[in-house]
Design a protein around this nucleic acid. Structure first.
Lengths: 276, 276, 276, 276
DNA sequence: AATGAATGAGTATTCATTCAT
DNA sequence: GATGAATGAATACTCATTCAT
């Protein structure tokens, strides 16, 4: 309740300024100021003021009166209870979890809203209270989860560590992420959905990586070969995906992180033994 | 009712700027902007927007709801009651007023219970404490308002005045009624609702009129032509409805009562100039 | 088959002109002309020409080749049968009849597409092959039927008969129409539907009547009283509706046309007996 | 393929004007206009429009369909076949080509059987004469195309060349394949379809490669590092996919084969410059 | 008493498949 | 053999009503 009050009071306070500007003489201004203040501060003894206003500002009164009513309602007057901003978060999370589970098992089109509802243990209507449509639910699911990854990668990138180290850590974070949200992998990779879907996801994945810049510098310094940067980037991402795919095909029965050394070794030094 | 609107609209417009400053991200800003604009421009289709707001801006809603109420009151919405009696207002009446407003704007099927609740400033549950169902609310609304008309007509009929005079007064009362409850006209006339609805309403209208009897006597006495009584009755009612319709089509921008002389003249003496 | 061919041939002929304009020397022009003519006339011996074209107009060939293919398909070559432009009309009418029946019984909202399909004796999918949506079906139903009335009224109006006679005939036609399509009455009168629906229908009804003009002239000539023209018009329409309503309320168990004399008498001369 | 488009587009544009002249009412004109514009602009989402046309302009459809086909051919669509062989073309192949085109553009679920039929220039029924169901058509499409790849890879593997050389050639063949059937890439990679689909495709890809064996031997001989074989394999495949993806993202505007050296270099020797 | 989050029965619409012509 | 009109099972989404708080 405290929450909504503060907002309303601020709003009304702001309103006071505005309404004052509407009045065209000092007298009116004083009256309205008093009125609004008494509303804001205490909302007691409003009635006598209302009567004064009625005399001197008949043209503004209906508006103020309406506002007062609204304010009273909003402040919870005459309603004993006021749900303290019911926590949408918990149920939303339940739905998102269920959605991830079903979507990633069945894919977008084969997933029926009924199943998500059942999986989440809520009614079908509840889904639609929280997400406008199947599409929005899907989008939100991908976006929210993906931005976690994005943030973590960004943290790693914006350190002053050596490029090689950053690269390793990104690989690690990438694996860690999909190990956690394994279901997400299929959704992100499949270009199934037509609405921005495919392209957009890939794009997001790519745009995430301002590391491009660092790599480029490293290449300039001779730390890396002068290969086409973009090709290498797409290839690396693909390589990582391949390794995740292997893990999934094996039923996730080992720790994805164990693959890191191999991945790093191959991508940095190749599979071929050093020529001497 | 005297056009205080100009003041209110300006106020609301100004307010729009303020409220936008309260919002802290683009999305919210857009929603509120839309909402306020729809209030300012037309106050049509506000309800769907309210629902959006409810989902995305629960913390601002009470404030906006208050504002909307204020605006409605300010625009001269029906009840002459002033703030003192606010708390004593029968909730039932508030609901019925709201229902009349929404039903008559949107029709039965396009009216959502949520909108009535919001318009009335009560929770949806409260609606169901007072009326068992949407249907009952609708029925009661029509019945109660219509019985006002019925009573008035009955008073007129049960005097000993001349039949012609009675007829004139009935016409007048009929117009007066729909001028007051203009929204009701659409509801009563449309045969939209299937539950007895249509038939029943027409029936009610007809049964109201024991004047049939008097007219019949007058006809017998040669005061009226020996036309089929019932045909004339239906025709008269239709004629009145037509004139009300014209008034509505013209945006109710004149006094319906002004039409009375023409109506009386035509129905009693026809449009043709006397042959002699 | 003959049907579609003629269209295609015309199209191709036109195309010939166009394509000729694209070519930039006489030689090319001749080739294309020949080619197209052989397609149009006989579609025999096209192949040698194609080879010529291939040599001299390689850049246009693919386009022409495609066109030829399309033309062959279209002409029904290599398909023994070609449904001779299956007659959509019959089934459309069945659907419209069914729709009128159900809509007028139940109203727009209470009518389920399933029922219309069942009533029409077709599958639900067939409905959607002929009408894009419930709304379109409804609109089309009203529009098509109403334009019949409109046309008939127009015929009546655009004669040189006396205004009074025209009026009578319009009344008669109006009754005749609703006697035929009795179900339509409810649909047209109820302002049930929100999409243009109500207003639009009333508007249509009114706009139908250029008779306004004639009446106005008659009033000027003193044939009619100098009453407000529009009021009279709305009133008259309402009167007619009232009488139709009576007929419906009586289960349509008499001939609506029988009411005509009373209607005419009242509207022209009133119900009151002539004062002497 | 050699850009004959400019000519065709001009022709179609001109044609638009002509065809419009053939239509005899506004509605038709609009439909055709839309249709032709969508053909000219992008040739995307033509199918929904075709359906509209089919409903409202059955008599013009064959002509337009021919035009569309011509346009597709003209744009360089796959088959090098010229008109002589038209009649002998296996319908099955026509259908599979059409299916590949539509499936790869729209994905499995967004592809409607109607569109495939139209694209192939056959009736919907014909589709079902050749393939039992949408699913079977899809499966067969993937299988048949993929087995081409499989065969070629097998040929390469079953030579006595050096492992490194074999590897290079496989990379090349892989690229060559997707450069040819670019549409197929999306289908194979997306795990969209639930019926064995995803898994099955990946499995197919893997089982294709008995090269595993050779690589294993090479590793044993110290030619390769003793990395986990399977990890490397999945990674390599992923890497290749990544590079194909890059190519697609760039609109296939360069020769995929040009990427081969970089791919080989990185996978065999890594991106890091040799430590001395 | 009042509230509004949750519910799920009910509906318009789509599209793979069939089959009469 | 080929065709495409007809079909109806399947599904996303709505909204009147309920009930825990």
């Amino acid at each position: 309740m405290g929450k909504t009050e503060s907002v309303d009071i601020k709003a009304v306070r702001k309103l006071a300024d505005k309404v004052k500007q509407l009045s065209d003489n000092i007298e009116k201004e004083r009256l309205i100021q008093n009125f609004l203040e008494s509303v804001v501060e205490e909302d007691k003894d409003v009635h006598p003021l209302m009567e004064e206003l009625q005399k001197h500002l008949p043209e503004c009164l209906p508006f103020l009166r309406g506002l007062l009513q609204g304010f009273n309602l909003a402040s919870g007057r005459s309603k004993g209870k006021c749900y303290q901003s019911y926590d949408h978060t918990e149920i939303r999370e339940r739905i998102l979890d269920a959605a991830l589970k079903v979507f990633s098992t069945k894919g977008y089109y084969e997933t029926k809203m009924d199943w998500i509802a059942r999986e989440a243990g809520v009614g079908k209507g509840t889904l639609y209270r929280h997400f406008k449509s199947k599409e929005e639910l899907y989008r939100y699911l991908i976006d929210s989860r993906l931005s976690e990854l994005k943030n973590k990668i960004n943290e790693i990138i914006h350190t002053d560590k050596d490029v090689l180290e950053i690269l390793s850590e990104c690989f690690a974070e990438y694996f860690r992420f999909f190990q956690h949200y394994r279901g997400l992998y299929r959704l992100i990779l499949s270009e199934e959905v037509p609405f921005e879907g495919g392209k957009y996801i890939k794009a997001a994945l790519r745009n995430i990586y301002p590391i491009k810049h660092k790599l480029f510098n490293a290449a300039q310094k001779g730390q890396f070969k002068q290969v086409n940067f973009e090709t290498a980037f797409y290839g690396f991402m693909g390589f990582l995906h391949g390794v995740v795919q292997k893990w999934l095909d094996h039923g996730c029965n080992y720790d994805l992180m164990d693959e890191l050394p191999v991945v790093t070794e191959i991508l940095l030094h190749g599979v071929k033994t050093e020529r001497r």
